[in-house]
Design a protein around this nucleic acid. Structure first.
Ligand SMILES: [Mn+2]
Ligand SMILES: [Mn+2]
Ligand SMILES: [Mn+2]
Ligand SMILES: [Mn+2]
Lengths: 226, 226
DNA sequence: ATTAGAAATTAGCTATGGCTAACTTACAAT
DNA sequence: ATTGTAAGTTAGCCATAGCTAATTTCTAAT
């Protein structure tokens, strides 16, 4: 799946462009700068380089688009990232709120050989601890029809599948409530005007209340289908 | 054990200076350049920087010496390196001739938190797959009285403890002969004039012949003491 | 059609850590 | 004591990738 040796910056920019587009946002200079925590002027510089490398299509003042080659690199780095997260959580018992930060660096440091060994040791997982899909070696990636919790109706039982958030703070909070991928919850009540949701944890039978903006980051699918 | 964030170059140079001195060589500009595969002129530049950072004592045209701060950084990186080698071998079944290359990069990428988790998962090992001692968190390091195989006499039984070599080629060869740390061998014969050694593998009862210059890299201790 | 303001780009820096080519220094052999 | 040579240093490059400040462009509201 690797194409040729890339610098860390090239890997981070292509990954960022991919994820911005994947979540439905537009990969503008400012959006990329915000995501990577660099100044817009620096992004313009890198975009020129990525365009020269044929990894993006770039017209000044316009949003960018990954080429097939750029997409391949992005998926490669994301595969590293999510495999590492999964490995750290499963093999080393690292809490799910710490794995992202660690993977952010390790994703650039592991060889294809190690990538394969990790995938093998984990049994080629399809999803990471946050429910993010792990791109396969061949560049394909699992697609699911997920909706945020507030998009379901009261009375529905849903299976939490993915948390669209990576900051440790939020993850620790959601984890403490038991809202992790795989958990089934019943939507008990939705307060009006974007008010909090009341959820019932199927397994424990306990009831929890979750702010609308937090529930918005919890993606789920119908019933308790696996 | 960490002091403050260091660049990869700073970590590699201090590590290299430490290992050159540790094996009994003199850390000159040329020796460091050879080890790191850079030009001597580049080494001079970095030595000036390391001196400014108070990590080495440096007088132009003289061999360098690590300060206490420099030594701490070197030991930290070496601890990372050897813990990673051990982890890759034990937890992922990676062959001992591949772990060095991988660790050479990962040593700069893991956090102190991950370092601790790896050490914990392995039960705080004292030695890596090559028998190299793993510096402890407190900066101390196991010392052993080892001698190369040719330094023993015919008829002696010795326990292999360390291989002073890191190239995959040599490690694969020694591994194929069964000459790995922990193995006990009997020195059967030493041909004169730096000729090959004939060894008997205790467990298998088989006999092998090893060139003098290879035997020179195999460090052992008397008997089969653990 | 104008135009204000946001978004993006350009120009010109900086730091890091490589390199080659030219030079200086140290020292060992005479 | 002199001097040739290897070792080491200096000077002047280069690439990468960040920054600020100044400028240009796009667009949406008038
Ligand atoms: Mn990254
Ligand atoms: Mn994730
Ligand atoms: Mn290294
Ligand atoms: Mn080792």
């Amino acid at each position: 799946m690797r194409v040729k040796p890339q610098t860390r910056a090239v890997e981070d920019y292509t990954k960022t462009i991919y994820t911005i587009a994947e979540r439905g946002d537009v990969p503008t200079t400012n959006a990329i700068a915000g995501e990577l925590d660099v100044r817009p002027a620096s992004v313009t510089g890198m975009l020129r380089k990525l365009a020269a490398l044929q990894l993006i299509r770039y017209e000044p003042y316009r949003p960018v688009e990954l080429t097939e080659a750029g997409r391949r690199i992005a998926l490669e780095v994301i595969r590293h990232h999510r495999l590492i997260e999964t490995f750290l959580a499963q093999a080393l018992g690292m809490p799910w709120d710490q794995v992202h930060e660690e993977a952010e660096i390790l994703e650039h440091a592991i060889s294809e050989r190690l990538e394969d060994r990790i995938a093998e040791a984990l049994g080629h997982p399809e999803f990471d601890p946050h429910g993010d899909p792990i791109p396969r070696r061949d560049g394909t990636i699992a697609r699911r029809e997920l909706r945020p919790l507030p998009a379901f109706s009261s009375g529905e039982a849903v299976r939490i599948a993915r948390i669209r958030r990576q900051d440790a703070e939020a993850l620790r909070y959601l984890g403490s409530l038991g809202l992790t991928p795989g958990t089934t919850v019943m939507i008990h009540d939705k307060a009006p005007l974007d008010g909090p949701l009341t959820l019932e944890l199927r397994d424990l039978g306990t009831s929890i209340v979750l702010a609308h903006h937090m529930a918005q980051t919890v993606m789920a699918e119908h019933g308790d289908a696996s």
